[in-house]
Amino acid sequence: MLNTELPSEEHAALDQYPTADLVDTLIADQFNAVQAVRNATPSITAAIEAAAPRIAAGGRLIYVGAGTSGRLGVLDGVELYPTFSWPHERALSLLAGGKGAMFQAVEGAEDDRQQGGADLLELLPQANDVVLLLAASGTTPYVLGALDAANASGALTIGIANNAGAPVVAGAQIGITLDTGNEVISGSTRLKAGTAQKIVLNTISSAIMVRLHKVYGNLMVDMQPTNIKLVQRAVALTMHATGADEAAAREVLEQCGFHVKVAIVALLRKQPVAQAQALLARTDGSVRAALSAP
């Protein structure tokens, strides 16, 4: 059996635990997910270094998975727009069973290898695309079909699984093994296996966005202020980066559609918004480069 499927011998009487002990056991096991990701640091680093230039050259992030793994891919892609203003059409997700499987399990869909390949090909993958293929088992046919199609297209493939030697890891150009072992609730890979996948997806996509100059220092300066909370966050980030008071920060932000990086450059260089925008365009959107430009 796969390690992720093996029954755990450590908590054989889990159903008899007092609630406090049950909660403590479930939480404690999650720390193993963090360690599994740490152990995979070299392969995660290699994935980011290979992916970032392709994305910078116009490639797309494409997530592929089934069940929990697929839903985590959808989540990571969806959150890139409000956090980093990443275009929706450049963060695509394929979930076995289609969009409806996001809300209701379509378990049999993951067994269709041919459909995985067909769904991937419908996206017309290109050489600069980065395809992230997730499967806790590493053997999911739908994901393996997409892997074959992505490899044939010349796209960069990154296979992520929770079992050593998994086909999705071995068949990808870069493989990431998150060896989380068996689960407290045997076979329920929505637990620490899912947590490890969430961490690695957060790490890969966030690191790529940092490399694309969507972060200045450790501030997210390319966010979308799509609600009151995020408008307030844009003001706070601009104040923090520039030392401007709230009135000054808000005034400049209103002139540039609450684009934080433009406001920062305009305030620190004491330039009109239009000049700040032009300067950022010349420096590939890098606030740091714009501030040091002659």
Rank of each mutant, 00 (worst) to 15 (best):
Q197W: 00
K198H: 09
S205T: 13
I185N: 07
K192V: 05
L191P: 04
Q197G: 01
R211W: 04
R190L: 01
G194Y: 02
H213F: 14
V210A: 14
T203W: 03
T203F: 10
S188C: 13
N182K: 14
V200Y: 10
T189H: 04
L212T: 13
N202K: 06
V200W: 12
V200G: 08
T189S: 10
G187N: 11
L201I: 11
V200H: 12
L212G: 13
G181V: 04
L201Q: 05
V210I: 15
V210D: 11
T203R: 11
R211V: 13
G187L: 04
N182E: 13
R190T: 01
H213W: 08
I204L: 10
M209E: 00
I208T: 05
I185W: 07
N182A: 14
S186F: 10
S186I: 06
I204Y: 00
L201T: 11
K198N: 13
S188Q: 06
M209I: 08
R211Y: 13
T195K: 00
T195H: 09
T180V: 13
H213N: 12
I204F: 02
L191N: 11
E183H: 03
L191E: 07
G181D: 04
I185Q: 13
R190I: 01
I185A: 12
S206A: 15
Q197Y: 01
L212K: 12
L191H: 09
I208S: 03
V210R: 13
M209L: 07
A196M: 02
G194S: 06
V210T: 13
V184D: 08
L212Y: 12
T203D: 10
R211K: 15
H213S: 14
I185C: 11
A193G: 14
T195V: 09
V184P: 04
T189K: 04
S205A: 13
I208R: 00
L212W: 12
T189G: 04
L191S: 05
I208F: 01
I185K: 05
I199H: 11
G187S: 04
A193S: 12
I199N: 11
E183T: 09
V200I: 14
L191I: 10
K192Y: 07
L201P: 07
V184H: 07
T195S: 06
L212V: 08
L212E: 15
G194N: 01
S205R: 02
G187K: 02
A193F: 04
I208Y: 02
A207F: 07
E183C: 01
N182S: 15
V184M: 07
S205P: 10
L191C: 09
I204H: 00
R211M: 15
T180P: 10
G181Q: 05
L201C: 15
H213Q: 11
T180D: 09
V200N: 05
S206Y: 13
I208H: 10
L212M: 15
L201H: 09
N202M: 03
N182Q: 15
L201E: 08
G187C: 07
G187D: 09
A196S: 08
S205K: 02
I199P: 12
G187I: 08
S186R: 03
R190E: 00
L212I: 15
V200K: 11
